[in-house]
Design a protein around this nucleic acid. Structure first.
Lengths: 232, 232, 232, 232
DNA sequence: GATGAATGAGGCTTCATTCAT
DNA sequence: TATGAATGAAGCCTCATTCAT
């Protein structure tokens, strides 16, 4: 090229082209950044109170760009939910099939594993989002139910059944026993994202300690035990 | 009475007083009707997605009337929360003081009583509302925490301590043990108001059965019992 | 009447009837009180920024009552203007006809008299009102012009002409000479009611001193005088 | 230049820069167009009676666009006042310092110059606006007073003092003498914008003739002259 | 006549979405 | 593709006006 390097116009072009290069490198990442920003904000403020401009800003793009990737705010919302729903139930299901330890340990493993993979990540905002917005987005609530709640419940049910079958757990209601495991986890996810509860440390909640305490009680509650004078 | 019933002046006075009474009865009923309508809608759709006109309509008045009683949508929201926060903790606290049965029964009593007094009423929407909107209304979230969460937690803590003191309950973490009781109730309240989850009966939840099942497991989990080979 | 005096219902009726008596006594005064209140507020805040409820309140009646006397806010406005337009031009005109002093004294008399009868009263708000609202109320502006500005201008013109005819005043433009007298008075009326100007005493304006100073300059300006080297 | 004109990258840069230039030219012109439209309407109808949509329409944009440039109707109003307040008093002050003609000519120059620079422009609406709205916008009225009325009065005072010092003007009250000059100008500005008065030509007012007539009378009124039997 | 609760049209403002550049 | 200025539908809120009492 004959163009002198110090020609200001050329320099400008290069800057532009560098930026373009960088931009294109990041292009693939755009939807992900937008989804991450949107997840944060939707979880924090709810769907209606979140402005798309905020989402775009947080993702480092302009408002218009967001609409290149998501045709509407609602589509963005759906994409956020979809993107953060772990399709890991088959994986977990397999782990359960091949698990060889005690059912108590299996419950411990599951709950802790949920915390590591979901609860402690941003994906834990999804339950809060669904609780808050289910009424406004019935289809996506249905989708969430089918993709998450049903498989999750089924998984828990099989774990409990395994414990009963192996003589480790006392027989529990096959439907309502599930909530014994499910409720503490969903509660934890929501509590975590309710800044009203977390803002003030007067009602503190350390997730690991919380899970440990819940497991202790639940597992003793599930365990088979000698006859006791207590009414059960 | 010596006054003749058909004295026109007297009659007028009575009419006036009847009219005034009726008018004022209506006027006094308005805020309550509006609060009830607003609670429903805020719980169902969230603060931002609820239109004041809807609230007014559901209360059977026009848009403008709402603003005669609440100076803004936000004030309406605050009033809804305030109006539905039961200051019943002293009452419950007294019941606890004088309770003479076993601590297990006390826990049962408390949970069932919560369901009867709060959970089964519209007030059960408040926890969902607070979870969803705490981020957008920090002051009112703080108020909720101080007026509800802290006293509630304190009450539960005392019940657990009573059980331990009387040799009925195993020692639990004084902080995290509380969640063993709290989490299932809050979960129930939120689940109930998450129409996305309830709309479809594929994951059903009958509150009484749910509470019974939770109590069974929790109470066995809390109970003192002979040493077992299980890790506790 | 057989009714006992201490019967509470009767007592109430009496109170009512006393109030009614008082009310009826004041009934005749109502429109005047409303007009006075409206004048104050319209002048202070303008037509659009004045709320009818404020007017009613200041007049000591309810909002509904105002509409018993004036069919709309606009009618109230028109009535305010009409009520405060002095039909005194014929009176003044007569005074002029029969005035026997110097024309200079006549001008002094007129300006001071205007201040006493109009400028220092609430009616002085009308010019401000008309200046501010003329664009929004063309008909009433026209009415004001016909009833006030034209007669007032004509009066001034005749006074000036009298001075010229009697050899007291230098000849001035018959149209624009009028403003020499008119402008200072209207300016005074508006300045007085512009709280922005009056609120702060950094640009003070004592009406009597203002008028005296204006008269001094104007009258010397109008006076016939010996030839001077000044360009006139 | 070595760079080929048809180098596509360069061309692109130019296009971009043209596009940006045009876009930004529009963007930069908007506030001015909006301010001009708003000035017109506020002066004509007053603040409260002017609808923002009208302002936007007259500026050729949509309602929403206005709010991109002014955060509220009130801010628009403030900006209108600020934008039309000439900070030209230092300039005028300098002209006064270096003026070499007679004080009479200086007064003529000032009044005519005010007409050319302010009175005949749209900025002449500001005095009317301030008179009408001062009560509703105390802060901006204060600002107007400090930025316009006080410097303006000070300027006039110095001109009069100059005349007295040079033996050209008779001694006048240093405070109230100012109004001799100020009142006719402010009156003119307000009269001009009171369409009620101007709409009908029955009380006509040609500004140049008005100013000439006022000057004639005022200047003779200020001039030093031989003792006269008139009371002064 | 008098009241003041109720109404609802209308104005300000926001923000998802579009589109020219 | 990316931008961000522009749009306008929709929501909150006000207040002149009505009307049952």
């Amino acid at each position: 090229m004959v163009i002198k390097k110090n020609c200001p116009v050329v320099a400008l072009c290069q800057v532009v082209s560098n930026e373009r290069a960088k931009r294109e490198r990041r292009k693939e990442a755009r939807p992900g950044e937008l989804l991450a920003a949107a997840l944060d904000l939707f979880v924090e403020k709810g769907f209606a109170a979140t402005r798309v401009e905020e989402v775009a800003q947080r993702a480092g793009v302009s408002k218009g760009t967001l609409f290149l990737y998501f045709s509407s705010k609602e589509e963005l919302f759906k994409a956020v939910v979809r993107a953060n729903i772990s399709g890991r139930f088959t994986e977990w299901s397999n782990e359960l099939e091949t698990y060889e330890g005690s059912s108590e340990d299996l419950v411990r493993y599951c709950m802790n594993s949920w915390w590591e993979r979901i609860g402690s990540t941003k994906a834990s905002g999804i339950p809060k989002l669904m609780m808050s917005e289910a009424g406004n987005f019935p289809e996506i609530a249905k989708f969430y139910q089918e993709e998450v709640l049903l498989p999750g419940s089924a998984l828990i049910k099989r774990i409990l059944q395994r414990g009963v079958d192996r003589g480790e757990f006392t027989a529990v209601d096959p439907v309502y026993g599930v909530y014994t495991i499910l409720a503490p986890m969903i509660f934890l996810a929501m509590w975590k994202h309710s800044s009203g509860s977390c803002g003030d440390p007067s009602v503190p909640l350390n997730p690991e300690q919380y899970i440990a305490a819940q497991l202790n009680t639940i597992l003793q509650g599930l365990s088979v035990r000698p006859a006791m004078p207590n009414k059960a």
